[in-house]
Amino acid sequence: MPDLYGEAMRFLTAIALTWMTAAAGAFATPGQPTDGNLGFQPAVTPIMERINEFHNLLLWIIIPITIFVMGLLLWVMIRYNRKANPTPSKNSHNTLLEVVWTAVPILILVVIAVFSFPLLYFQDEIPEADFTIKATGYQWYWGYEYPDQDVPEYISTMVAEEDLAEGQLRNLSVDYPLVVPVGATVRLQVTAADVIHNWAMPAFGTKMDAIPGRINEAWFQVNEEGTYYGQCSELCGIRHAFMPIEVHAVSQDVFDAWVAAGPGSDEANAVIAEYSAARETRLAQLD
């Protein structure tokens, strides 16, 4: 049986926390979900920034529409209930009104479209890339290859709960992460070996199906150093929830050192670990 009292307390604490975070304004760690938050994860690529802006615009449209409909409903419920209005009118036509509620939504949709298409084309047209990463989905792990750096495919598997090291996240951390230099434009090629998977990274705004027999392309450019987590986003069988994606955005020289150390090896991981530790201290000093 669930511990009801504990649940209730956690419920209340969490509500309080949420309101505090909401009040403090997006007090979230980039690259991972923050408990109780309401919106997108912080954007770290140009694509995600634009998605975020466009989504904010949409919120400014859909929330007022919803409130408008709710307001109308409340109004008719108050003004035209049987007590307030015992004799109903029999009117059932009003051409002007009908034209208005056809035309205004069309205009709103045109506005949406005007902002929607540029975003779509921005995402979809891949700019001149600095290098390519090839990601292959397997049941149930990812394989990464850096053809331009001659890095052969290495396998990236979730860290089991009992093996989690200090600072690693349950269901999100992997043994051999993907590493990219900050600011580099990366062309991502995705495919799969068995069933469909999907390479999804919320902080990047990237989500691309990995389909056997096809190669799909996407791109991203990470603007901030850090560690970002994503998850397989197409149902692929029993361990669908357990093939996460971890990307480290590092400086160019650390990236080079990582490539030289042979990605997919403990040496390469050591390069990243050292770098992250240094960064933590740096950040701590800044505070």
Binding site: P33, G39, L169, R170, N171, L172, Y229, G230, Q231
Partner: peptide, 14 residues
Amino acid sequence: LQGMPRRYVDYADG
């Protein structure tokens, strides 16, 4: 919006 995928039996703690 926080990125939780569908059809997940278990999710990230966030």
